[in-house]
Simulated assay, not measured.
Amino acid sequence: MDRARRRADADRAYNAQVQAGTIGAVRATGVGVGLAIIAHYSWPWFRRQTLAFKGFLVTGFAVFGLVTHAERALQTLEAEQRKVEGALRREARLALARKGLVATETQIEKWKAERLSR
């Protein structure tokens, strides 16, 4: 059960990163292409550069957008998971205290398993 939940969490994180990374890469590529076009028509030094160099610069923008957006999406997802897990652990500690039990990690895991089985 725990392994399946972890696998589902990992898949959800991967999908969030792929989606956000794709959006970030497309946006940053557009910015890079736009800046390259502007630089090409307004800066003679840039106009003399090769197409490969200009493509390298645009690719740098795309990679930067992909990485930053994917990382931000993962950090947001992790923060949400920590918030949910913290609330669940708080609820478990209160429920176990009402029963007169000490909220150890083992007891909290048993409480979670009972709650999921209901």
Rank of each mutant, 00 (worst) to 15 (best):
residue 22 T to K: 12
residue 34 G to P: 10
residue 26 V to Y: 00
residue 101 L to R: 14
residue 91 E to S: 13
residue 85 E to L: 15
residue 39 A to I: 01
residue 98 R to C: 06
residue 117 S to W: 00
residue 91 E to M: 06
residue 83 K to I: 06
residue 2 D to F: 08
residue 41 Y to Q: 10
residue 20 A to W: 09
residue 114 E to F: 00
residue 64 F to T: 13
residue 113 A to C: 00
residue 37 I to A: 15
residue 37 I to R: 10
residue 38 I to F: 14
residue 73 A to G: 03
residue 92 A to I: 01
residue 70 A to T: 02
residue 21 G to A: 02
residue 61 F to D: 13
residue 59 T to K: 05
residue 29 T to D: 01
residue 23 I to N: 06
residue 72 R to V: 09
residue 74 L to Y: 14
residue 53 F to Q: 02
residue 51 L to H: 03
residue 60 G to N: 04
residue 65 G to A: 05
residue 52 A to R: 01
residue 70 A to K: 04
residue 41 Y to W: 11
residue 46 F to A: 04
residue 4 A to R: 10
residue 25 A to R: 01
residue 105 E to I: 00
residue 29 T to K: 02
residue 44 P to G: 04
residue 39 A to W: 12
residue 25 A to S: 10
residue 103 A to K: 03
residue 114 E to P: 00
residue 19 Q to R: 13
residue 46 F to M: 03
residue 1 M to R: 04
residue 84 V to M: 05
residue 15 N to E: 08
residue 61 F to K: 05
residue 75 Q to V: 14
residue 52 A to S: 03
residue 22 T to C: 06
residue 78 E to I: 15
residue 48 R to Q: 12
residue 75 Q to F: 15
residue 56 F to M: 06
residue 42 S to D: 10
residue 99 K to F: 11
residue 67 V to F: 13
residue 1 M to P: 03
residue 18 V to H: 07
residue 43 W to D: 15
residue 66 L to Q: 05
residue 33 V to Q: 08
residue 75 Q to E: 13
residue 40 H to E: 14
residue 35 L to R: 12
residue 51 L to I: 06
residue 17 Q to P: 01
residue 25 A to I: 01
residue 107 Q to V: 03
residue 25 A to E: 07
residue 14 Y to L: 13
residue 12 R to F: 11
residue 25 A to C: 10
residue 62 A to Y: 00
